[in-house]
Structures are given as structure tokens and as C-alpha cells.
Simulated assay, not measured.
Amino acid sequence: MSGVDLNSDLGEGFGRWSLGDDDRMLAVVSSANVACGFHAGDPATIRRTVRAAVAHGVAIGAHVGYRDLAGFGRRAMDVPGDELRADVLYQLGALCGIAAAEGGRVAYVKPHGALYHAAAKDERVARDVAVAVGDLDPGLTMLGQPGTAALAVAADVGLRVATEAFADRAYAPDGTLLPRSAPGAVLRDPDEVARRVLRLATEGVVEAVDGSLVPVAADSVCVHGDTPGAAAMAERVREVLDAAGVPVRPFVGGAHGGAAGGAPGGAPGAADDGAATAG
């Protein structure tokens, strides 16, 4: 990989309550997954986050989720298809409007929490999300884990897709993420995380919990904004990448737009071959 995108979940405060250090993260990452108001984020918080992303030249993504403020969007929900499509469209439309008002544009979509995991496994949920996205803007890119229903269905309905890996999460030998409930599932050592991201960016592999090396296709690498010490961890990752001469840049067009999709360094977008090669 000739370059790497760093993405983070941002704008996840609500009213007087704040989460993470968005200002520090936006100085480091190249893509921002902005909460759209259902799992976190209120209109003023969303607008501040988008304005800062535009100022930093960071690509803007819609972090859509279930309507679950109390559970931070991490509780499994059974939402009927027509309602889920409307919910996704509502969130995406709101973020697109705010981004336009701030001189930016939404370039991609990344479901949040329980919706991310449901779309990864459930083709009906994946199709509801993808159809809603395509109904608003078929030029948007869907970001998700390789080998999932979310990306296969998104590609099937004509969306571009891009794959992501996780900087601060442990991997099982089969390439899946270790469940958050498992010991050691969330990595907290900035140096260890930085070394893993550098290896992923330069060799395309991550070390699994059993010590084996697992190939992971990644157009983007996520550093969770709500992980304790996330900003310092992201800064360390960026320092190591910069020192190694690995460019950090959005996997899609920057905050003001550009061609959606396509991997860093001009490689073909995952929509061209991701469904066949993922997993």
C-alpha cells in the first residue's frame, strides 16, 4: 500500500455532553465518520464537527446508526425495512445539508455500532442501508469490513465500496475482530498500535492473537475516537507513519469533494473486485 487513510468516529457528543477530543483527532486523521444524531450528535455538534473537518481538509463520512441514544447505537435492534431505510435516509440527508452549508460534502457512509455489525451479517439489513444510500446519492462509497454482506450488497446495488481495518482492535486467526467482551480485544498501547498500523500499511497483514499473520485488505484504518487515550494513540500512529514515509490521505475525495471510491495511491476501488476477493 503506497498510502493509508486514517478514519475516526467523531462528533459523538450530545448537547452539553462531550466524548473524545475531536480537535486533536482532526489534526491527525484523514477521514471523519460524523455521528448523524441517532446514536450521538445533535445539530450544533454535527455542524461544529463538519466545519472543523472542512478546515482540516478531512473527508466527511456519514456515521449512520440505529435510533438509540441511550444505548449509543450499540444495542441490537430489529427495525422493519421501510423504517430502517427512512432512518438512514434521514440521517444522511441531514449530514449532507450541513456539509453543504459548510462548504464540504459527504463522500462516504459507514454504519455505526450494532447497525454496522447487523449489516455485515444480515443481507436484508445490508440492502436496506445500501438502497437508502443509493436513493440519495449513488456516487457515495460504503465503508466496511472485507468479506461482509454490507459490502457485497452495496456493490450489488451499484455503490462503490471500500474496506477498513481497525488499529485498536485485536484480530482472531480467521481475520475477524475479537469480540469486545474478550480479554485483550481493545488495544491500548500507542506504540503497539502504531507498529500494527505501519505493518498493515506496508505489508497488508496484522498479527492475530495467536501470533499468526492475517492478510487484511484495508483502504482505510479506523482509530476509535471513544477509546480512552484515542487522541494520543492516533498521534503516535501518525508519527510512526510519517517517519516511515507512508502518506496519510483520504481513501475518497477530500472534505470539498472529489471522486468517490478508489483506494489510496490510485488503486482500483474495492467495488471493482472487493466482493470477489474479500475474506
Rank of each mutant, 00 (worst) to 15 (best):
Q145N: 15
F251P: 00
P215V: 14
V29F: 00
R249F: 12
L6F: 10
A218G: 03
L89S: 15
R199Q: 13
D242Y: 03
A218C: 06
A218V: 03
Y66N: 03
M142I: 01
A55S: 06
V186S: 09
M233Y: 05
G61S: 12
D226F: 02
A35H: 09
R160V: 03
A182K: 07
G134H: 14
A259F: 04
L136P: 08
P146R: 08
P111C: 06
S220M: 09
A86K: 07
R47Q: 11
G175N: 04
A162M: 03
L26N: 09
A44L: 15
P268G: 10
V4Q: 10
A94R: 13
P179T: 07
V131F: 12
A208F: 11
G134V: 09
D68N: 14
P138M: 10
A118Y: 05
L10Y: 01
A243H: 09
E12P: 00
R196E: 03
Y116A: 01
P250Y: 04
R195N: 01
R85V: 08
A155F: 13
R169Q: 04
D191H: 05
E239G: 13
W17T: 07
G211Y: 08
L178W: 02
A182Y: 04
A208D: 02
T277H: 15
P250K: 06
N7W: 06
Y171M: 06
E12H: 09
A201N: 02
V205I: 10
A53E: 00
G257W: 12
G20H: 04
A52E: 12
G104N: 01
V54M: 10
G253C: 12
S212Y: 08
A263K: 13
A150K: 02
D122V: 04
G71E: 03
A130I: 01
G265D: 08
A194V: 02
P215H: 08
R196N: 09
I98C: 02
V50P: 00
L198W: 06
A259Q: 05
A267D: 11
R48Q: 13
A120Y: 12
P215R: 14
K121M: 13
V50M: 03
V125C: 11
D210H: 02
H39R: 03
L177H: 02
V206C: 12
V54C: 09
F14W: 15
V133G: 08
R199H: 10
A35C: 07
L187R: 05
G274Q: 08
D23N: 04
D82S: 15
L159W: 12
A40G: 13
G93T: 06
G279P: 07
R249C: 13
D9N: 12
A149I: 00
P247Q: 15
G61D: 09
G144K: 09
P146M: 08
E203K: 10
S8A: 15
R160D: 15
V209Q: 10
A114C: 01
A152F: 11
G73T: 04
V106P: 06
H256I: 15
M142K: 09
P179Y: 05
L84Q: 01
D273Q: 14
G274T: 05
D122I: 08
V58T: 12
G211S: 04
L140A: 07
A201Q: 03
R48Y: 10
A154M: 04
R169H: 08
V161T: 14
L143A: 05
S30K: 00
P183A: 06
